[in-house]
Design a protein around this nucleic acid. Structure first.
Lengths: 208, 208
DNA sequence: TAAACAATAGCCAGTTTGGGTAAGTGTGAT
DNA sequence: ATCACACTTACCCAAACTGGCTATTGTTTA
């Protein structure tokens, strides 16, 4: 039995979905709300498996609502509902914690199969949205052209310790060299990184 | 005319794919390589639209090869080929820059339609992989329970400037206050964050 | 073989920080 | 009206840091 909750402000659409879900074998509608405020209050008590969430809601919108629900119930599966494929809003919804989305004009049969799919680990979305998600997900091949002046292993090591807040002499005793040597490495590091203080160097270092 | 290149070490599979692509209306195979090394050398000259890349290759593997190709040709569309759904490898491939993947046992008809789909902005992948991608993509709602000893707005402001590597006097002139005031705020910040140097403070600050 | 460079070490002058102490102003709560 | 607290300024001192110059020992490369 898949427990479903709905958040949808349009009465007609909401009632249609209730009918669909309640009328289908293996599904139950455990809550239906016309706005995010009511949903946020009641859904934690009802503990549904899946929430169908309209993106455009009066007051708190579906994206914000998704984010709040996910903080309270991290395991909750939220599927967005939208009339047309607004790429940005869908993208933001996914970032907020939704696992996929459905268009409101999706045939009833497909809605039900998508819900089952979601419970089995799927993520209903069009290939276009998937591409956008995948792209945002590409790791930058880290541009080491001009930006990375290639520190030597020793310099990297010293920079790593510097980033932990060690003093020169602490780094020195850690590496069994003299504080003056540490000092010298740091000067080369600063030159290579084009910075003039440990803080700037550490900030650059932590950004990779 | 869609220009396709292949990287696949199994001769039989590679030749099958060449036949499929060359024998299909609107497709051309502009290169076929048994290993990553050859592919990396020749593909930039051939400038294909799409590369079909086996994940498991002798020597440099398909993931590494994808990463290198994307650095040279950021617009190149790479689709991974794999015999079974190895979630981790596929996941890494997508991170490396691939836009999707196909199973080697996919029917020929579907392979061709997936390639067209890719050119139109699609991302062929199963719902399970999509879910994994979407999840890695969720933004943490940032946990500020005990970890954040609540800095005052002014303190946050000063800490932000400190993190950019500003000197006391630079922060002072930026905020139109005296360096001594900056100094004082910093002392309170250090106390609250339980640190004893700007570097440690900045490191803590940047981790949120 | 000569040049380039990483790693080591030192000295010195000037600047920046970190910690101590003190105190004035304003705001909001009890 | 008193108290707590954020924000502000100030001075002192010791420790740490930055950047200048110099120099030796290896290793790698041209």
């Amino acid at each position: 039995m898949i427990r479903v909750a709905l958040v949808e402000d349009d009465d007609k659409i909401r009632n249609n979905l209730i009918d669909l879900i309640e009328g289908s074998e293996g599904f139950r509608c455990v809550g239906a709300y016309p706005n995010a405020e009511n949903a946020l209050e009641d859904i934690p008590d009802k503990a549904p498996d899946i929430v169908l969430m309209d993106i455009n809601l009066p007051g708190i919108d579906g994206i914000e609502c998704t984010q709040r629900l996910k903080t309270k119930m991290p395991g909750l599966l939220i599927v967005m509902l939208t009339v047309y494929e607004d790429v940005n809003k869908i993208f933001n919804s996914l970032q907020a914690g939704a696992v996929g989305y459905l268009l409101k004009l999706t045939p009833h049969r497909e809605i039900l199969s998508s819900l089952k799919d979601v419970l089995q680990g799927g993520s209903p979305m069009s290939a276009q949205i998937a591409r956008k998600v995948v792209q945002s997900f590409h790791r930058e091949p880290k541009q080491n052209k001009n930006s990375e002046p290639s520190l030597t292993p020793r310099e990297e090591q010293i920079l790593a310790l510097l980033s932990k807040g060690y003093l020169y002499k602490e780094i020195a005793s850690e590496l069994l060299i003299s504080p003056d040597t540490v000092h010298n490495h740091l000067r080369k590091i600063y030159e290579k990184l084009q910075v003039h203080s440990r803080t700037e160097a550490v900030v650059k270092y932590l950004k990779n």
